[in-house]
Design a binder for these strands. Sequence first.
DNA 1: TTGAAAGCGGTACCAC
DNA 2: GTGGTACCGCTTTCAA
Lengths: 325, 325
Amino acid sequence: MATMAEVAARAGVSTATVSRVLAGKPVRPDSAEAVRAAATELDYELDRTARSLRRRYSDLLALVVPDVENPFFTAVARGVEDTARRAGLSVVLCNSDDDPDKERRYLAIAASENMAGAIVAPAAGDLPVGGLARKGATVVVIDRSVEADVDQVGFDNVALGREATRLLIDRGCRRIACISGPSGMGTARDRELGWRAALAEAGLEVPPEYLRHANFRVDGGRRATEGLLGVTPWPEAVLATNNMVGIGALQALAASPGDEPRPEVAVIGDLPYATTDVSGLVQVPLRPRELGVRAAEMFLERLGGFTGAARRVVLDGTTTGAEPA
Amino acid sequence: MATMAEVAARAGVSTATVSRVLAGKPVRPDSAEAVRAAATELDYELDRTARSLRRRYSDLLALVVPDVENPFFTAVARGVEDTARRAGLSVVLCNSDDDPDKERRYLAIAASENMAGAIVAPAAGDLPVGGLARKGATVVVIDRSVEADVDQVGFDNVALGREATRLLIDRGCRRIACISGPSGMGTARDRELGWRAALAEAGLEVPPEYLRHANFRVDGGRRATEGLLGVTPWPEAVLATNNMVGIGALQALAASPGDEPRPEVAVIGDLPYATTDVSGLVQVPLRPRELGVRAAEMFLERLGGFTGAARRVVLDGTTTGAEPA
DNA sequence: TTGAAAGCGGTACCAC
DNA sequence: GTGGTACCGCTTTCAA
C-alpha cells in the first residue's frame, strides 16, 4: 500500500498538502489536481489507523445490542446505519448477549479503538461507559433507560402495556394474562405495570398465576404460554410484552392440541417474519428503525458539537430535557 | 486516559517493559507486578489505534453480509462471533444490502483500518478484496462462491434444491413450482437447477410459469406466490429456495381466501420466527451457525499461519482443496 | 531481562 | 496557500 509520503513525493508537494486535499481544505487547484492524480496512480488508500491515532477518534460507531438475532434490533441497526452513513460513519454492530461482561468488553474496545462513540441498548441497569466517557466519546442509550447522565431514546413502556391491554379489553376479553420479561428488566416491568393499570382502570382482577416472567426470547414465550394454558380458568387473552415472546406464544398455541377456544394474543412489537396472517392479532407496533434513526441523529448532533444537557426522547411521545441545538 | 508512558513512569520501568508485560512476554516477576499495579491504579487501557498502527493489523474482523435482517445471516454472525472471540478477535458486522458499492466500501474500510481480514457473503460475482489482499489480510468467502482464489465455505445448493424437491415428490406432489432468487445469484440458480434435476429424474414436467424469480426477501416470496396462485393448473407444491421467500410464500397462502386445496410449501432454510407450527412443512435446514463457525475457523487458521492453497468447503459434504494444517 | 530510540502513517501547528 | 516538523501511543529492534 502506498503511503501519503509517496503520494506527496509523486505530486511534488508535502504530505501536509496531500492531507489537505483529502480533507477538502483550500489548496491551489493545480496541486490538488496533481495530488489526486498521484493518489489514483498509486492506488493510494488512506490509513485510518494512523489518522485515528493522530486525531484521537475514528469514523466508527459501535452499536451494542443485547441480541442481534432479534429482528427488533436488526431493524434498529438499519436505522442507525442508514443515518450514520450519511455522516460518513461506519457502524460496528456488537452483540452483548445481555451479558454485562460482554457489554463492558465491547465498550472498552470501542474506547480503546478511539471510536467516535457508542449507541447502546444496555444489558444491565448500570452502563459501563467509563472508558468512552473519559475519552469524551459520545454515548446514546436506546430502548432501556439508565441512571447515567447520557442522551436516551426509548418508548413509553407503561403506555405500551396499557394500550395493548386496553385493546384486548375492547375486544371483550376480561381474563387477561401477561408474559413479562426477566425481573429486573425495566422495559418489561413497565409494560407489565401498564397491563396492571389497564386492568385496574377497567375494574378487572386476575389471578396471580396470570403473570409470568420469561426470558425475552422465543422459547421463553413458548414455555410461559404452555404454563398459562394449564391455569384454570384459562385466560381469554395473553399479552406478550415483546416480539420474541409473542412469537413463542403463537407457536405454543399453534402446537397445542384440541379445539377449545384459544386465548387471544396481543403483542407489543412487530412480527416481520410471521408465517401466518397476523392482521387479526392485537398488535402495538414499535418502529424500531425510527428508534435507530433518532438515536443516530442525536449521536450526530453531539458529534457536531451540541453540548446541552442529556436528553430523554420518548418515541411517539414527549421529549424531556434539552432540545437539539 | 493514562498512556503507557505514564504507567511505565509510575512502575519505574520503560514502556518497552510495560508492553512486554501486557503481551505476556518474559519479564522479571517484580517489575511485572509493579506494572500491573500501576496499570490498575491509573485505570490504564491500551490504545488499540496506536497498536494497530505499529503492528500493521488489528484484532478486528469484518463480517460483510448482504442482509443483516435475514435471520440466516444473524445466525452466521453468531457462529463467527463466538468462534472469533475465543481467539481474541472482535467482529464488525457490516450490511452490504446486496449492493456491490456498499460492499466495496466496507472492504476498503476494513483494509484501511488494518483489520485482520474479512469474512464475506459476496453481493456480486466478483469480490473487491483488492485492498485487503494488498495488505496481506485474510479473506474467507461464505454462502455464495466466487472465482477468486480465496477460502470458501458454502452449501451444495444443487443438492439442496434436489433434496427439497424430492421430498415433495415423495409426498405425492407432481406439479411443483419453484421460487428462485434474482437471476445472476449463483445460490439461487443452483437450487433451481436441483429442482429441475429432481423433476427430470422423476419424469415430471411443469409449465414454464412454474418458475418464478423473486428478490430473496419476504415481499418477493409473497408476490411470487400470489402470482403462482393465478396459474392454471395450480401447483400442488411450491419450493421456496430461501428462508425469506419461504416466509413470504406462507404469508401469501395464509392471506389468500378460499378453501381450495392449498399448495404444499417446501423451504430451503430455517424459520426460527415462524408463528405457526411448521413441523408439517417440507424443510431443508441449513445450519447457518455452523457456516459461521467453520468460516471463522478457516479464518483463524490463516491467521495462525496456514498458507496452503485456497480451500473450498461444502458444509455437510465434501471438502475439496487443501486441508487445514 | 531491560531501556533507548526509531518508527508506524497521518494531522495540525507554525512560520513563511 | 504551503512545507517543515512535532507528535499521537504503541511495538520492536538493538545494545547493554
